[in-house]
Design a protein around this nucleic acid. Structure first.
Lengths: 348, 348
DNA sequence: TTGTAAGCGTTATCAC
DNA sequence: GTGATAACGCTTACAA
């Protein structure tokens, strides 16, 4: 701890010269002349209060500027109605997924607590923080393969994984059919006349394994097993650029499928700088159909995942486990869709 | 409420067949054979416990898998040590800023509570949620101009605005010197030989007003007031594209400064599709130096804000108001820096 | 319909 | 150094 010594006293700031503490239900009760529980009933919208008192209580609450205390509510009722979501702030795909969760969570009567992993905080620390806040369920976007083990967490609260299954036990999984995605990419390229189609691997990132398998299977299905070529890579621009280096230094295929958009973009950059014309001499396909893929100047052919649907299914799965009796773990794989843009064309 | 009727009962899920409730301090106390407050002392690392009991308590806590309850802690101690941050999940610039806040907040002994505004939840709703959770301070990134009024909030907790001042009262502001940023852009273009330099406006978005003013002032300073031309726009790709339409349908300048990167990218797309060569026939400058600007295929000359420094200053300002006696509101404007890339060149 | 009593898990205050 | 007791703000019983 290098900063100012944290004092355990009441914070001084903002209370510019003896401001009142924030009003509680007791204040409202006193103000109206009823008991505290009655105020609670009214503010929760529960049954058991006359319309007359209801009016008076609500009026007083508004007057006093009352705001419910989520801490006290959660503590006492043993029900926070909060769902935690673990995701990486740097991954546009995951951020988009989280954004789509809000309306779903709201509709089911819950709230979303964001657990963002960053360069400074791994999945384990963030999970712990969410659980301290008594999240009732957890959605893990892009769970780490060798990282934090979620099994013990899944014993405590319902857990849903998005992107791939990493955890054994009663954990639901929502993902897209990654193998089908790369198969569509291969089909598309083959239909354009390509045969020498390389694949930039995604390492141990979410979905990467299936994308690789789908590529291999599709190549084999087209009788191109001998042409199949997997280059090591990852989900970042740097790794895509490195993969490009490997391809350039050896023999160049007529088409490359990258295991995600960022990697495709890094690869694009490298080959373009090396003087390779895209799509004239080399076709490139990405995966995710992220915001980047749609950018002018990139205009990347890519495989789109159904993000809103994934968000909806994931949240629903957690809530079901919360509100309904236990059931078998579910594993949903949504069909992705190839979006053809400017980086694919017939081979030279 | 259209979803399943929220039951107020205890959640059924995950407790697969009578799982134990999570252990509390009382459990540890019983396990070790000491009083509950003593356990509290040990776990908080406070003084007043012998090394012997300290060991035993810590061991028992680990054994039982104890996890502190933030709700109860916050409620009782009246000190959550949580700082809320309001930001838009869709704005890469704001996300980056938030990411940089984590280590700072941590270092000062606080935690960050993310309040993401989305298409579905505006600043007002999110602020309310953060305050219900007893955030002790609030960082507002890119405060809305005509939106939610923060004055009453600032009465309750310290508030810092990032990007521009919107709120009167004891609110600190951290921003970049937007006028200086666009001035650098103009200087750069003029030094390349440009005279017909247009500006795509940012509407009422954070910083837009000062960027426009800086543009106008710089043009005047170069004796180019007559050449100055402000086209209506915004901070999105769409608005940039629309602005491009306006420029194309009239007379094309030799250079354009867009009020942010996304708008510049939308503009780029439109002019490129119209057959205009960049930077040969038209130079383009953005603002923010976002991840997009650095992408190959975009390679946008842009104005960089010092994001980590802004994050640090903002957090420090809130914590100061929390821990230190009241002081005058502070308004810091950091100097941005022009980053020259491939979209600017001498005029034809 | 309303009020009383108790308790959620923790920390603060006091005795011993 | 340690333990009993009260309290944070709210909800859940149950009694009136």
């Amino acid at each position: 701890m290098t900063g100012p010594e944290p004092t355990d006293q009441e914070p001084a700031g903002a209370r510019g010269g003896g401001r009142d503490r924030r009003p509680t239900m007791a204040d409202i009760a006193r103000h109206v002349g009823v008991s505290r529980p009655l105020v609670s009933i009214v503010l929760r919208g529960a049954e058991g209060a006359s319309d007359a008192t209801r009016q008076r209580v609500l009026r007083a609450a508004a007057e006093l500027g009352y705001r419910p205390d989520s801490l006290a509510q959660g503590l006492r009722s043993n029900r926070t109605r909060h769902l935690g979501v673990l995701f990486a702030l740097r991954r546009p795909f995951e951020v988009e997924l989280v954004e789509q969760m809000f309306p779903v969570v709201e509709r089911l009567g819950y709230h979303l607590l964001l657990g963002a992993t960053t360069a400074f905080r791994g999945q384990e620390a963030v999970t712990d923080e969410l659980l301290r806040y008594r999240c009732e369920g957890l959605v893990v976007v892009g769970p780490e393969l060798d990282g934090h083990r979620l099994e013990p967490v899944a014993e405590e609260v319902p857990v849903v994984e998005i992107g791939r299954r990493v955890t054994r036990g009663p954990v639901d999984v929502v993902r897209n059919d990654d193998a089908f995605g790369t198969r569509q990419a291969v089909d598309h390229l083959v239909s354009l006349g390509h045969r020498a189609i390389a694949f930039v691997d995604g390492g141990d990132n979410p979905g990467a394994e299936d994308r690789r398998a789908g590529y291999a299977a599709a190549m084999a299905a087209h009788g191109l097993a001998a042409e199949a070529r997997v280059v090591p890579g990852g989900y970042t621009e740097d790794e895509g650029a490195k993969a490009a280096g490997l391809l350039l230094s050896d023999r160049l295929p007529t088409a490359v499928i990258a295991s995600n958009d960022l990697s495709a973009i890094g690869l694009l950059d490298s080959v373009l700088r090396a003087g390779v014309r895209v799509p004239h001499e080399l076709s490139v396909v990405g995966y995710d159909d992220s915001r980047f893929a749609r950018l002018p100047g990139i205009d990347l052919t890519s495989v789109r995942q159904d993000v809103p649907r994934m968000a909806e299914l994931a949240v629903q799965a957690v809530v079901e486990r919360l509100d309904l009796p236990p059931r078998e773990p579910r594993d949903v794989a949504l069909p992705p869709q190839l979006v053809v843009r400017g980086t694919t064309a017939p081979p030279p």
